[in-house]
Amino acid sequence: MRKKLLCLCAAVLLDLCFLGIVCRLAVGMQWEDLAKVEQADQTDQTVSSPECFSGGELALTFDDGPHRVYTKKLLDGLRERGVKASFFLVGENIPGNEELVRQMAKDGHLIGVHCMAHVDLARQPIEKSVEEIRETADRIEAVTGKRPEYIRPPYGSWSTELQEKVSMTPVFWDVDTLDWKNRNTARIVKHICKNAAVHTVVLMHDAYQTSVDAALETIDTLTAEGYTFVTIEECLID
């Protein structure tokens, strides 16, 4: 009797073990299938996600000009495409390049102050920074007849004290192309397109051929994607 009972218990245990194995296999298959589905969904999203979002407005901004060679090429390219941009000028670069500044104004580009020289405005005496800003604004007004209202502080360095002393609107950026550093047209275009979004402010410099080429190629590429290009003023108003 005892032997029969032991045999019966052993048989039940074997059945339970077999059932457990089957259940684990079934559950494992379900999780594996689910993982495959999720992986497929993620793959589909990656493949179908465009590098440039469709539509929107971008403000292309250019620092450190005017440059007697490259600013002229950029202005001519923008005129051909009917595109307006924003230029933040270095005061020291204006003498001898007045005609370029006049062309900027005539074509409807926004002209703002960068500085007399490329210095960190927040790291020098406030009086000196204010004087440099005003002198640059004076030079722009003498050429265009209009007082600039916007400033792009070098390095994005600004302070509450400067804001109180200077009645201008500081302009920063959303996308830094680092075009002055990599000087690679394809890389600059790819970076802008990858980060394009509504009301994106793009920082560039009109002192390099690669930057000019990248700006014009970006315009052609994103215009086909449904983008429009605006000045900083238009961007802020919208």
Rank of each mutant, 00 (worst) to 15 (best):
R139P: 03
I21F: 06
I232D: 12
E80Q: 13
I126G: 04
K84D: 00
I219G: 05
V113P: 02
V27P: 02
R68E: 13
R81M: 03
A40C: 13
E98R: 08
Q103L: 12
Q45T: 10
G82W: 04
T200H: 05
R2C: 00
W158L: 02
V27K: 03
G91I: 06
V69E: 10
I192Q: 01
K106E: 12
L89Q: 11
E51T: 11
L14A: 15
A207V: 15
H114F: 02
C17L: 13
H199C: 02
K72A: 14
F172G: 00
L236V: 10
L25C: 11
A10W: 10
T43H: 02
P153I: 09
A59T: 02
W180K: 09
M29F: 10
H67D: 15
V113Y: 03
G91V: 06
L19G: 10
R68M: 11
V175M: 03
L203P: 08
V212H: 10
G145S: 12
I151E: 05
A122L: 06
M29K: 12
H109M: 01
E80H: 06
C9E: 13
F18W: 10
Y155T: 00
E233Y: 09
I151Q: 07
G56L: 07
P66N: 12
Q209C: 01
M168D: 04
A117V: 08
L110E: 01
M168W: 06
V143Y: 11
L14V: 14
Y70V: 09
F172R: 05
V83L: 09
L216T: 06
M29D: 13
V22F: 06
E141M: 10
A186Y: 13
W158N: 03
T223K: 15
V47R: 02
E57R: 15
H109E: 02
P95F: 03
G77V: 07
L203T: 09
C193R: 09
R24Q: 09
A137W: 04
F53P: 03
